[in-house]
Structures are given as structure tokens and as C-alpha cells.
Design a protein around this nucleic acid. Structure first.
Lengths: 166, 166
DNA sequence: GGTCATATGTTACTTTATAACAGATCGTGC
DNA sequence: GCACGATCTGTTATAAAGTAACATATGACC
């Protein structure tokens, strides 16, 4: 387990991807069991594709996977699976990309910060509890109740910056 | 001039809208003069519609205004005007809504925080310099260079929360 | 007044997302 | 076991958001 109080860009560096995938999958399975959620074939297919890719994928890219797996070929199939996964905190929607990425922080509710590389489309997720809380409190002081927070930084990861310079 | 180190939800409360509009317009005009930018009829129409509405509007809503004004009826007309206004910091894109809102902080580059009311679609903008800088620095520590930062809180303003409770 | 950069007009198209409704399946209580 | 309500799936159709490409026009500057 890495520190989560600072931004980690592991997604952009070498890491034990097999392990991070297995761990995320186990966390989701445990959450489904605990909360009586149904991890159906279509939902599992979408989640696995995202864990495998470790980058943001669009609904239509995911629909291709579903089609290949014989699990449906129309947009609502993908959007419904994504809706379930996002609602339950297993996947995050990246607004900036109109795309989706698997959550690497275990599925409970949390405010996440995303670093999005415009080169490789990789996405690093960090959880900065004090940040979300501070913003929500500041907004509440004005009578505004924040229900959802989107924090996304777009730029270049170290590798892509080198590649672009070359 | 209000404090900009904390979130202001003026957009959701009573304020001198006429003055805030005029002030924003003057700032944009000054910036155009200083930077040799061309404020053409289509661009002005879009900006004025946004200043007038004081809420997020989609590209197609703005295109309707352009059409009414006889300034074009095809999507690229609206998108080009918006591209100019966003590039120059006069308008912000609200990712969460795929929509646009006039900037209330004078057009220079800045990291803005938006509070988006899902009831009335009103948008309050705040500038929290230390926040953007902190995030960028944290990311830079990981070799990631942030070029653009998106911070959006979605929820309910005081008025809409009351209306919903009723 | 030529010319280069910028802005406009238009056609056609891609990508992203949802509404609506019929049918299948699951879990629960009897 | 089976009726039931809730949830999930399959499908058609369409809405909404955004862009590529190319021709034409306008402005700024020498």
C-alpha cells in the first residue's frame, strides 16, 4: 500500500501490474459480496478491460470488448455496465476525456484527484482527503452543498514529455 | 472586488448583475485591445449571451443565439467562437456539463474552481491560487507536468436545496 | 494594392449518450 | 415449486456534442 496523502504517479511508472489488478479485483468482489451487488458477465467484462488497460477507455472502446466477448453490441449495454460500476465506486468517469478508468482505491466513496497524460492517456489516481473536505466546507459556508467533486489535471507524464522533446 | 481566496457563491445570490456584466465586458475589451485580439460579431454574441445568462450554456444553445442574430447556423460557428473565448481565458468550459460559462476573473490565466448547481445550472467561480499551485507541485514531484487543471464541485445551491426539500 | 494570416460559411460526418419498451432472470416469501 | 417484484438484458431509434475538410472572405501590414 502506497501513501495516499500525496499524488502517486505509479500508473506512469513501472509497477506490479498483475498484482495491482488482482488486488483491485479482489476488493471489488469483496464489496459486491458485502453489499449484495450483482457482478454480471457484462459488468465483469468492462471492469476487467479497464483493469487490464490501466488507462482511460471510452464507452465505445469498452463496447467493442463486450461485442468480442459476445455480451452485447449496442451502446446501452456498455453504458449500463458503466453506470453500475461508477455508481458503486469501482470505476471513475474522467470528465475531461469522456472516458472511464478503474478505481485503484477500493470502491468506497472518496474524492479522487486524477492526473491525465494527454500523450498515453494513462491516468494516475490519488486520494487527498483534506482537499475534498476543505473545498466542500468552503462551499458549504456559502450555502452550497457539494455532492460530487471532480479534480483533474491534464498534462504530460515524464515518459511522454521525453518522447515529445525528442 | 470580492475576496478571491475563498469560494464566493455570488452567482447564486442577489448581486448587481448589470454591473458584473459590464465589468466583465470591459475587462474583455481591454484585454482584446492590449493583446491585439479581434472581437468579431460572432464572438461578441456568444460572450454576451453567456454574460447575460450567468449560467452554463451548451454550444448548441449558443448556436441558437447566433442563428437568431443572423450570425451563422452551423455548429462550427459556435465552436470556433468558443474556442477563441476559451483560449484567451474569457470563457471557461465546464467539463461536467459539456457547457460553457463566462469568466468572472478578468481573462488572465488562472486555475479556477467551479461550483455547479444541478438545479438551476448556475455556476460560481472562485480562484484559489494556492490550491492549483499545490496540486501542480505535488504532481511535478512525480515527473508529471500539469498544463491544465479542472476543479468542479457539483451539488445544490441554497435556493435549489430549499426548492427540492419543498 | 499585394499578400499572408486570420476569420467565416458550409457540407458532411464522427463520437458520445439516452429514451423507451419488450423480454429474461434473480431473490424472496409463501 | 412457484408467484411476485425488482433488477438486468436486448434492441430500435434518436438526441446531443464535436470535428474534418475545403472554399471564400476579410483584415493588417508592408
Amino acid at each position: 500500500m502506497t501513501r495516499s496523502s500525496d499524488i502517486e504517479a505509479e500508473a506512469f511508472g513501472p509497477h506490479d501490474h498483475q498484482a495491482c489488478r488482482a488486488q483491485a479485483l479482489a476488493a471489488v468482489e469483496a464489496a459486491c459480496a458485502a453489499r449484495r451487488l450483482r457482478m454480471t458477465p457484462a459488468r465483469a467484462c468492462v471492469l476487467e478491460a479497464l483493469l487490464e488497460a490501466h488507462r482511460a477507455m471510452t464507452a465505445y472502446e469498452l463496447l467493442d470488448r463486450l461485442r468480442e466477448a459476445g455480451l452485447g453490441s449496442q451502446p446501452p449495454v456498455a453504458y449500463r455496465a458503466l453506470d453500475f460500476l461508477v455508481r458503486n465506486g469501482f470505476v471513475h468517469r474522467i470528465e475531461r476525456l469522456s472516458a472511464f478508468v478503474a478505481c485503484t482505491h477500493g470502491g468506497s466513496e472518496h474524492v479522487a484527484v486524477f492526473l491525465i497524460c494527454r500523450g498515453c492517456r494513462g491516468v494516475a489516481e490519488a486520494v487527498l482527503p483534506q482537499l475534498g473536505a476543505g473545498l466542500a466546507a468552503s462551499a458549504a459556508g456559502q450555502g452550497f452543498s457539494v455532492e460530487r467533486m471532480v479534480i483533474e489535471g491534464e498534462g504530460l507524464c515524464a515518459r511522454c514529455r521525453e518522447a515529445e522533446a525528442a
